[in-house]
Design a protein around this nucleic acid. Structure first.
Lengths: 209, 209
DNA sequence: GTCTATAATACGATAGAC
DNA sequence: GTCTATCGTATTATAGAC
């Protein structure tokens, strides 16, 4: 029995352990938020002990901040590499739509993580991300399209909200709506692609002159 | 001092007390979900004691179910009275948009309540609502509009999702995005009206032939 | 029906061995 | 760096007076 435990026990690896904890915490915090998430559940999911969480992240709030920091850093990198100016307004918007949906598809927990942050913490940690840079690049595309006559007269910020709403809401409601049509797997690659094409057609028709 | 307490103490009123508790719980559960919400915080907000919550609702989960049941019942009533067939497809869609936004405006906590239910409980209690009836009425309008040539060829269910995304996402992200433009009060009647008009123009352009 | 006081438990955090 | 064992507090839930 003692042997079994020895086998299970992990090889020392600081970096890997931290990643395991962050991955598990991202899921638990996205499901339950800061207050609702349980250190013990995070530890179980990460297959380590609660002591390790305190060892690396001091306490629950420290872990929470670290979990939020990861997407913030990734967005920062993404924005710094994002160049929409070389695309036509329409192509740039299509690119943004595909990026937004691909992001939801590959990071299914993060949107809810930010919703939790919004509703529990009034978005206090949200501020630290470079979202403004991201938004400005997209609204600039809309303004360019309006000037060039490709798009009709629009409020850029409201329109950006509409566009992201079309892209993201599909995923947000998935867990509830799946009960309405249980036979349809909305998260299958095939159905996400259908959603993408439908969203592109919908949005382009909505903003074109 | 004892007198003060006597003054504060509530007149017996079962119905009023239950409503106070449900109203407070709706806010706390929408912010923190089932696990994250605190009975003591609900009691404080409702200006009663935790003992009253257990008296009326047995335990935390019983209260949670009761909180979810209220919007389910209201939707049921709304659906049973909803008649979109006497309107033109375009007018019906505009009506749906206005209803959806008005609902967010007047029940600012409920959308998040369902998101919490989705992410914490996989939408298990969500099933009990008559959402299918609501969705069917709207998709029927879309199908009617396609047949009559008012709307282009659309996937009704995906389009319904897009439409609700445009209407609702604005409110969902409010708590986070308010930090990006702190000077704008997105929840003011004036700005919600702007959102509404922008959403109507966006959606109609998106679906018109 | 409402309260105060308190029991029972869940949870976050720490100490110390390995 | 990782674990087991345990402490202390926060939180749910109950008993009993009014």
């Amino acid at each position: 029995m003692a042997r079994l435990r020895t086998v299970k026990r992990q090889i020392r690896n600081a970096e890997a352990t931290q990643k395991q904890i962050l991955d598990a915490a991202e899921i638990e915090f996205s499901r339950h938020g800061l207050k609702g998430a349980r250190i013990s559940d995070i530890a179980k999911r990460a297959e380590i002990t609660t002591a390790m969480i305190h060892y690396y992240f001091e306490n629950k709030e420290g872990l929470y901040k670290a979990v939020l920091q990861r997407p913030i850093n990734e967005v920062q990198t993404f924005v710094s590499q994002l160049d929409l100016d070389h695309l036509s307004p329409e192509d740039a918007i299509v690119f943004v739509i595909r990026m937004a949906i691909a992001n939801e598809f590959h990071n299914p927990y993060r949107q809810m993580l930010w919703f939790q942050e919004a509703s529990q913490n009034q978005g206090l940690y949200f501020k630290q991300g470079n979202w403004t840079g991201l938004f400005e690049r997209v609204t600039k595309v809309l303004e360019r399209g309006i000037k060039s006559g490709h798009f009709r007269s629009l409020d850029p910020m409201l329109t950006l909200t509409h566009i992201l709403g079309v892209c993201i809401f599909y995923f947000t409601v998935q867990e509830n709506w799946k009960h309405l049509m249980p036979e349809v797997d909305r998260l299958s690659a095939e159905n996400v692609e259908k959603h993408t094409e439908s969203a592109i057609a919908f949005i382009l028709a909505a903003i074109r002159k």
